[in-house]
């Protein structure tokens, strides 16, 4: 009997992916080229309708900006936390990593709900600010982009921190000592040694946070409300409320393409800066 080649072990999964992953995606593309919601008349009508409407571009732009703002906010406070982790004692490191990973195991819906309690009219932020006398009327934080970005910053934070920490812990500590011994300040060591060397982790984190926050349907609808319209809400409305599947297919392909475009641009930038470090 002929010996089973090892690669054949991958066949069942290949079959599963072909039939329930690749086939549906191809069908999605196919459905988008139908003019009517009964899916009987092929044509470019839905694409023309979507691409001819200035509102579509606003929604695409807003969605991408939401992702970029969330990425910036997670870097701004996440990167310093990763630096603190790097300098911490092994015991403290264990505690920190626990705190960082735990939210990842907590349902996104729970984390979203938490922000409703924090940012709501009678939430923590308003209560504290009112009692301090900073404001007299409750601030409207829910259903604003600011509130949404703050919430997404927490919700997506582990995705930034894990790759960052994994790359940073592999840095040779001698490099930092050498930089300090040669007279560089800690700021200079940060920007000329640590940041360039941790670039792969930073880029990986940015990609994950961007991809996740632009498609975070529950957080976007619950915290952003119905007045802030992003691509995921549009997909949901068109497919499950209006039942215009071809149009929903057009929007979700647009979401896929825009996310993948920004993600590949980011990783291209990452590779370029990586090339600079390694010569």
């Amino acid at each position: 009997m002929k010996k089973l080649a090892e690669w054949q072990l991958a066949l069942p999964l290949t079959l599963a992916f072909a039939s329930i992953f690749l086939a549906p995606l191809l069908m999605l593309v196919g459905v988008s080229f139908f003019n009517d919601d009964k899916i009987t008349e092929p044509g470019f009508g839905q694409w023309a309708k979507f691409l001819g409407d200035p509102f579509s571009y606003k929604v695409i732009f807003d969605t991408m900006m939401l992702g970029l703002k969330t990425v910036c906010a997670t870097i701004l406070i996440g990167y310093p936390l990763a630096l603190v982790y790097l300098d911490a004692s092994p015991r403290l490191q264990k505690v920190l990593i626990f705190v960082i990973v735990m939210p990842l195991l907590l349902s996104v819906v729970v984390r979203t709900f938490a922000w409703i309690v924090v940012l709501g009219r009678e939430g923590v932020v308003n209560t504290v600010l009112m009692q301090l006398g900073v404001i007299s009327e409750p601030l409207r934080l829910l259903q604003t982009e600011l509130g949404l970005v703050i919430s997404l910053t927490q919700i997506e934070m582990p995705l930034m921190l894990l790759p960052l920490i994994s790359v940073m812990s592999r840095l040779d500590p001698n490099l930092r000592d050498a930089s300090a011994a040669l007279g560089a300040s800690r700021w200079r060591t940060l920007f000329t040694v640590i940041v360039p060397l941790s670039m792969p982790g930073l880029v990986a984190g940015c990609l994950l946070v961007f991809a996740s926050s632009t498609t975070a349907f529950i957080s976007q609808t619950v915290i952003g409300g119905v007045r802030l319209i992003y691509l995921p809400l549009l997909i949901w409305q068109q497919s499950l409320v209006v039942f215009n599947w071809p149009f929903a297919a057009v929007v979700s392909i647009t979401l896929l393409i825009s996310v993948l475009t920004v993600v590949s641009a980011l990783s291209w930038l990452g590779r370029r800066s990586g090339g600079y470090v390694h010569g």
Partner: peptide, 15 residues
Amino acid sequence: VLPGLTFGLAALMYF
């Protein structure tokens, strides 16, 4: 990396 919503909608149509 694929947006989950795209696959979700695709799976709904396909099935």
